[in-house]
């Protein structure tokens, strides 16, 4: 009798383990398929020209997306200028002084913002930056992406600054160090690795955003010289090329997609490396 129960338990155990494994596998399969497909399609079209040349007009074969790669980097840079100061300082506020109604409100709003579709944020940037300036620009694109970054950065910073033990804060205060210096020179550096992780994750997220750029940064077939001019970006370039009717542009779009995914993958891996360093220092 007991032996029967034991066998039944074993069987259920094997069954549930298998189910868990299956679900895990199913999660990974789409990613692997996307990566595989991208590699197969994109690898053919990626060459040196792709990284160094401007897009060629329709009909001419070849060319590249150099301007879009640089454009994406510029947009990310601009987004960081907007998103990082607000996100990091806001996160520090929430962690250190956010134990009240204001903190609750900021936290709630940032969660709502995090759930706001990025195209809506694009419309917002269009209204407050593009319309007054009367043109599409890199600034407007960076502004939109910066806003998308804020909630991720704010919450990551808050969580990691909160993880710094109270005893460390008290050690600082007990040395006669003013609170603001304790926060800036002792608490925040202790959480630095984690904050960097949050920032990299946010960068990885905005790197692939397309919708908010369509009517802010717009796109550009040439090198952009000024920040108040439309600027090319990989996601928008991919979008434009992918829906075009030209065979050669489709190839380019695949290459662009591969490069974009590679950039984001590298950022994610970088995040892992940084986090590992933190594990060691926090022990």
């Amino acid at each position: 009798m007991t032996f029967d129960r034991y066998r039944r338990r074993k069987r259920v155990n094997v069954l549930v383990s298998a189910l868990a494994f299956l679900c895990a596998a199913i999660t990974i399969i789409p990613l692997l398929m996307i990566l595989g497909h991208l590699l197969a399609q994109g690898a053919k079209a990626v060459n040196l020209d792709f990284f160094t040349q401007l897009p060629k007009p329709v009909g001419e074969v070849g060319g590249g997306m150099a301007n879009a790669i640089v454009g994406t980097l510029i947009l990310i840079g601009l987004a960081c200028l907007v998103g990082l100061p607000i996100g990091i300082i806001g996160g520090i506020y929430l962690a250190e002084f956010g134990n009240n109604k204001t903190g609750w409100l900021v936290r709630f709003m940032s969660d709502v913002l995090n759930g706001t579709p990025s195209i809506v944020i694009g419309i917002f940037a269009y209204t407050v930056v593009v319309l007054p300036m009367k043109r599409f620009s890199a600034l407007a694109g960076g502004f939109a992406l910066g806003i998308i970054m804020i909630p991720t950065v704010i919450r990551a910073t808050e969580e990691l600054v909160k993880l710094v033990p109270t005893s460390v804060r008290e050690a600082g205060l007990a040395l006669g160090i003013p609170q603001w210096r304790v926060i800036l020179r002792i608490v925040v550096p202790s959480a630095k690795a984690g904050i960097v992780t949050g920032v990299l994750l946010a960068v990885a997220r905005i790197g692939g955003e397309t919708a908010p750029l369509l009517f802010t940064a717009f796109g550009n077939q040439f090198w952009q010289r000024r920040l108040d001019q439309p600027i090319a970006s990989l996601p928008v370039q991919i979008f434009t090329y992918a829906i075009s009717p030209f065979e050669d542009w489709h190839r380019q779009a695949w290459a662009g997609a591969l490069v974009l995914v590679a950039m984001i993958l590298i950022t994610s891996v970088l995040t892992r490396v940084v986090t590992k360093g933190q594990d060691r220092s926090m022990r």
Binding site: V164, P165, S167, V168, E170, A171, G172, I186, P189, S190, K192, S281, M282
Partner: peptide, 8 residues
């Protein structure tokens, strides 16, 4: 509990 500054 000993509480040296972790980042220093």
């Amino acid at each position: 509990k000993p509480n040296p500054f972790p980042s220093m």
